[in-house]
């Protein structure tokens, strides 16, 4: 179980302070300040994690609920050839922790996870985690499709409401909302929190290739980046 980011590292905080102090003492004389050191705080190291962490103790969910949650997280952000999955990034732990602090959020998850199981039983006679991967993705595809239809419907409605030429509503029939509404809503919850957990983890930051949060005496823009974008732009060259 990986939950490196859930562990607060006090020595890291001490390090951050010393870096900031170094910056305050004046970095102009030093040329490029130790970028590695400045980036310090975030790259939590594996040894410390193992020492301080140990296996994560689930706070909010029953064992079976947690299995379903883990499977959803993994389906939302799976492992690929660039990076690991939401499980590797500590998404289930993140959701469990926040739910343990907020009953309203916990209720959303308890209810949503139960909905997923009930729905899957109706579809294939099995709970969500017991269904095949194909059955699981088929269900998520259905929800995503229902979500897209709902978004389109709302947008159309908005156009009708806002556009002057549609003062007359007599020709407008409201399409019935899908009965998957509760599932769509819950899936959006678990998706947005999984995506947050993944992309804010060291794993996700590396996947995206965020290079910032540094400390330099001079800011520069690499010529190769400039060349690349300019060539692909309508301007072609400088």
């Amino acid at each position: 179980m990986s939950n490196e980011s859930l562990v607060q590292l006090t020595n890291v905080e001490v390090e951050r302070r010393s870096i900031i102090r170094a910056l305050a003492l004046g970095l102009t004389s030093m040329g490029v300040l130790d970028l590695e050191a400045a980036q310090h705080v975030h790259a939590a190291n594996a040894g410390e994690k193992a020492a301080a962490g140990g296996p994560y103790k689930v706070k909010t969910f029953q064992a079976e609920e947690y299995k379903t949650l883990r499977r959803l997280c993994e389906l939302i952000v799976p492992k690929d050839d660039v990076s690991g999955s939401a499980l590797d990034a500590g998404a289930p732990e993140f959701i469990d922790l926040l739910c343990s602090q907020n009953q309203r959020l916990a209720d959303i998850y308890h209810g949503g996870l139960a909905w997923f199981d009930a729905q899957m039983r109706k579809r294939v006679g099995n709970r969500f985690v017991e269904a095949t991967a194909t059955e699981q993705t088929a269900m998520l595809d259905t929800l995503v499709k229902a979500e897209a239809e709902e978004t389109a419907r709302r947008s159309e409605e908005l156009v009708y409401q806002r556009t002057a030429i549609y003062k007359d509503f007599s020709n407008y029939t409201v399409k019935r909302q899908s009965d998957l509404g509760a599932g769509v809503k819950f899936f959006d919850w678990v998706r947005k929190m999984t995506v947050d957990a993944f992309y804010t983890s060291p794993l996700g930051v590396k996947d995206l290739g965020y290079k910032g949060n540094g400390a330099y005496s001079k800011y520069t823009v690499p010529a190769e980046a400039l060349e690349y974008a300019m060539k692909r732009s309508p301007f072609k060259a400088w």
């Binding site: 951050r16 900031i20 705080v41 975030h42 993140f94 926040l98 929190m193 060291p202």
Partner: peptide
Amino acid sequence: KDHKMPSDYAHRGAEDGGALYF
């Protein structure tokens, strides 16, 4: 909180109980 990353916080910046989501 300069030079912090979201992963320095267990709540990643969503705040305790996911206050941000509400």
